[in-house]
């Protein structure tokens, strides 16, 4: 008599180390495995290109490393991380890093935002 084996679900969150991984660490995570990839082209906006270039300048001038950029992105809480567009994560991380380094202060940033 054949032994009945319950088919194992192909992607089960129980197989993830979900309690331990950081949310940016996405390789093979079950909840994304059935999500289609959007392969349509999406043109970058002027904002995207400006943030990209600013990051490049800060890196080239050794004001901020790419590793610091990543740390700042990874520090964005999970829901926000998924809600924000790619370059909105970047500018948030850049801001966080400049504040941490004391290159700008919160008071200066608030004043600059208010002056808009």
């Amino acid at each position: 008599m054949a032994i009945y084996r319950r088919p194992r679900p192909r992607y089960s969150p129980a197989m993830d180390n979900d309690d331990k991984r950081s949310h940016h660490d996405m390789g093979g995570v079950s909840k994304f495995m059935c999500e289609a990839v959007d392969i349509e082209p999406h043109a970058l906006t002027a904002f995207d290109r400006d943030v990209d270039a600013l990051r490049g300048v800060l890196g080239a001038k050794q004001i901020m490393t790419v590793d610091e950029l990543r740390r700042g992105i990874e520090a964005i809480p999970e829901a926000e991380y998924h809600r924000l567009t790619y370059y909105r994560r970047w500018i948030r991380s850049i801001t966080d890093n400049l504040l941490r380094k004391g290159l700008i202060t919160e008071a200066e940033l608030r004043a600059a935002l208010d002056a808009k």
Partner: peptide, 27 residues
């Protein structure tokens, strides 16, 4: 993000940490 970028950019330029020309060149 758009507001943050404008503010950060203004501050970095005012502090002579970054110039608009450098950003344009990088782009």
């Amino acid at each position: 993000g758009e507001d943050l970028l404008a503010a950060i950019r203004k501050l970095l330029v005012a502090k002579n940490l970054v110039t608009e020309a450098e950003i344009a060149e990088r782009q």
